[in-house]
Nucleic acid binder design. Structure first.
Length: 272
DNA sequence: AACGCGGGCAACCGCTTTTTC
DNA sequence: GGAAAAAGCGGTTGCCCGCGT
């Protein structure tokens, strides 16, 4: 089904993900969000490239994802959207809650394309989708909904609705809105930023913690500190513990410094 | 039972776009 | 405004599994 795991020349693991790796990535992203995919695997204790982590999270681990067969409604919607948008899988996926671009793409190639060919008696590969896209701009889609074709700029409400830690898992658009200093209730002043930076500074840099047994170099799992007594990973992600500072600035600033201090103190107690 | 083949899907690759400095 | 870095996207690949012979 998937490629066998192997180590590439850079020492990075490739191929199929193990359950342990999934757990590490899931736990890390749920707690800290994906503040930097390139750096994330190092902090999460994974020997993977950031791209691979991002893909795994986006296509498989996100909690709001559906897994399983496509429904008839979904099939119909994909067919319609593909007719309208062509191979813009991510755009199509944004309009199918719980489905990923990769999943839709695979489903298209393995099922729907053939079905379409069967129906039409010919391939649709020659369709001029760019034309279709242009024609649909500012008009109505096949379901009669008034909308612009520029749906890339529409935050996929599926994520915002279904994910309790949406700032960390949402689309770029929603991230932008959430990260904007002047957006919504989470706005903070530059002086507050200074406070946060001061609070954050003592956090150990992973590069400085190369000795064994420290917090950062240990494989990351849903750690025992917060799992013991009703730790709610979503609330932790919300206040943005740890590194994803911009996410923390998004919301709940009042709580942030206090929680971060608590967190930091707990971590200090854990160290030898 | 053994083998071959095609389907399905997770993951990779390389290019493009966006963001940051 | 330009360069570099990061993120995103779509095409492609690799391989397991089920089915037919």
């Amino acid at each position: 089904m998937v490629r066998a795991p192997f180590i590439d020349k850079n020492g990075l693991k490739k191929g199929a993900w193990s359950e342990e790796e999934d757990q590490k990535l899931r736990s890390y992203v749920q707690r800290y969000g994906h503040w930097n995919w390139r750096e994330l695997p190092r902090f999460a204790g994974l020997k993977r490239c950031g791209k691979s982590c991002r893909l795994r999270w986006m296509n498989y681990l996100r909690p709001e994802l559906k897994h399983g067969n496509f429904t008839e409604e979904e099939d119909a919607k994909i067919m319609n959207l593909h007719q309208e948008l062509g191979n813009r899988w991510s755009t199509i996926a944004a309009r199918l809650p719980g489905r990923t671009d990769n999943e839709i793409k695979n489903h298209w190639h393995s099922n729907l394309k053939k079905r379409l060919i069967k129906q039409n008696g010919t391939s649709d590969e020659g369709n001029d989708y760019s034309t279709a896209t242009c024609q649909s701009e500012g008009s109505h889609n096949s379901e009669g909904e008034a909308e612009s074709v520029l749906i890339i700029d529409t935050p996929p409400n599926m994520i915002l609705e279904s994910s309790s830690f949406s700032p960390a898992t949402s689309s770029r658009t929603s991230e932008l809105s959430s990260l904007s200093p002047d957006s919504g209730s989470g706005s903070i002043s530059s002086s507050n930023m200074g406070v946060i930076e001061d609070v954050c500074r003592p956090l150990p840099c992973p590069a400085d913690q190369s000795s064994s047994g420290d917090f950062w170099s240990e494989p990351f799992v849903a750690d025992n500190i917060y799992n013991q007594d009703g730790y709610d990973p979503t609330s932790m992600a919300r206040v943005g513990f740890g590194l994803p500072l911009p996410l923390a600035c998004d919301l709940y600033f009042d709580d942030y410094a206090d929680h971060l201090l608590d967190f930091y103190q707990l971590q200090m107690q854990e160290w030898p």
